[in-house]
Every structure is written in structure tokens, then in C-alpha cells.
Design a protein around this nucleic acid. Structure first.
Lengths: 152, 152
DNA sequence: TTTGAAAGTTCTACGTA
DNA sequence: TACGTAGAACTTTCAAA
């Protein structure tokens, strides 16, 4: 993973529509050499997948809610069941097990409060949680899929 | 935005490597008809961009930190300055203004605690915050860019 | 590393309902 | 306005110089 690979990743994670030829030019390589590097990054799994990012506003998904969860259950079996239920909810776009005060943190994307309430009810019904707290995002100031490559 | 468009969006936000021909088959359309729909979704901005998603683990970005921020400054000028500083930090991948107890929530991606401490210092130095609290993710159970299309 | 060519894909032109 | 056929232009992919 040299400087050229890093440059290619930087390009790809910001815009994956460029042709191999255009990227080759940007990193001063022949098309084939560049193509082989990208191929290699894909095989090694450094590039996980290529996706289209949609505009939440246009899909009427204007509401982002962060939900923190505390639980009394700390056995593996409960965790696995809980994890499965939450992962299967398409409204939950992020889901972490946390250190500290809170046990789990979820980011939920929905059209409005009513839809959120449905998701909330499903959550507490299906998993028996001791303490659930919701915080609403008023404004999304930044949200990027581009990872910082400064450390690489 | 009919059922076919929705299906195309669903495909595209999960895998944008399929050819137009393959997608056309999936939605029972000719290649051209399908191509025009995708073109249209792009022009309307429903499809915002196409990107490659990278594997954080392989880039040694194994640490995710959620940072909550409270501030005494509530004027627009301070907000804009603060917002600019934070948005320009590549380690900050998400950044929201919140309702309730906390004023701002940041998701930060770094290789390790040392790197996080650097980011933390930069944050408090550049913006003069009254209360900053960090929570560490122990495990990423779900993280998807695919928005729920059930409401569309 | 580069050339080059086969296979595949995107995109345009034009016609139909 | 939405779809289809056909083909030109471009891109990807890979073998061989």
C-alpha cells in the first residue's frame, strides 16, 4: 500500500464514476498498471464495495435519531438475539456496542416522529430493554463515507 | 418515483457495480429504458454520488469514538466558525447539531487512542468548548449507507 | 511497462405506442 | 411521456510483446 494506492483510494472513495483511464492519468500510470492496482485493492478487500449514495431529503427521510440503550442482560445469548433484531431493522443504519455509561448506540433514519415511534415500539417490544433514550438531530453538518487516509 | 425506480435505487445503494443491462433484466425493462431512469434519478439528485466503501480495519482505522459537545456560545457566528473547523477535520466522519442535553454529536474514526487524543486536543484548542465527552465503540454491529426505502 | 485487440458497456438516434 | 431496437463510441479486461 504505497502512495499511489492511497491516491487511488482517495479518488475512489470520493467518486467511483471515473474511468480507469482517467484515474491512471491522475496518478501518472498506464491504464493497465492502474487497473491492476485497483483490481488488487478489490481482491484484498481494501475496497469493500461500490455503492450509490442517495439523498435522504428527496426520499423524505429527514429525521435522524440517536438512540442509547442500557440493558440488564449481559449474556452472549441475549446479545446475539438483540443484535439480530436490530440489524434486521432497515431504519437502523448504524449500531455499536459501547464502553461506559451506555451499552448500545443506534442511529435511526426515518421520515418523521410518527415513523420513529413505530420503530421505537418495535425495538422495546422485541428486545426487553431496561433503559432507552432518544436524541434528535436538528441539523446534519457533515456525513461522509470517506475515511481519513492520513494515517495510512 | 414508482416501484421500478425504487427497485433500481435499492439495487444501486447495495451494489453499484452491476451493468445497466443486468439491472434492466432485474426490473424487466430494456437496457435503454432502464438507463434513462437511472440518468433521471441522477439528474434529480436522488442519486447523490457513487463511491467506493473501504475497509476501516485494513486501513488501521479500528477505533470509532462518539464525542458529545456542550457549548456556552449560541450565536450564529460561533456556530459557523465551529462548524467549519470540525467539517475540515477528516477524522470526523459525522457531525450533527442535536436537540436536548447535548449540543453537538461527532463520530470520529482513528487508528488508536493516541491519534484520538491528537484530534481531541485540536478540537478543544481550535473551538473553545465548555464540555466535551467521549464514548468509545467496542464493536461495530451494523454500519450501512443503504437508506430504508420502505417509506417511499 | 506498454501495446493492442476482444468482449462488454454506455449512451445516442430514431421509431413506436 | 415512456419504452424499444440498433448501432456508434467508449471502457474494461487480459494476453503477449
Amino acid at each position: 500500500m504505497d502512495k499511489t494506492d492511497k491516491k487511488l483510494l482517495d479518488i475512489l472513495q470520493n467518486d467511483a464514476t471515473l474511468s480507469v483511464g482517467a484515474m491512471a492519468e491522475a496518478v501518472h500510470l498506464s491504464t493497465t498498471a492502474c487497473w491492476k492496482r485497483i483490481q488488487n485493492l478489490e481482491e484484498r478487500g481494501v475496497i469493500r464495495k461500490r455503492v450509490a449514495l442517495l439523498d435522504p431529503a428527496q426520499l423524505k427521510l429527514g429525521m435522524t435519531v440517536f438512540v442509547t440503550v442500557k440493558t440488564n442482560h449481559h449474556d452472549l445469548q441475549w446479545l446475539q438475539a438483540f443484535s439480530q433484531v436490530v440489524r434486521d431493522m432497515p431504519e437502523v443504519v448504524e449500531f455499536y456496542r459501547m464502553s461506559g455509561e451506555v451499552d448500545y448506540l443506534l442511529r435511526i433514519v426515518v421520515p418523521d416522529i410518527q415513523a420513529y415511534d413505530q420503530v421505537y415500539k418495535r425495538l422495546i417490544k422485541d428486545t426487553r430493554l431496561s433503559d432507552v433514550s432518544s436524541s434528535f438531530a436538528m441539523e446534519e453538518l457533515k456525513n461522509t463515507t470517506a475515511l481519513p487516509l492520513d494515517f495510512v
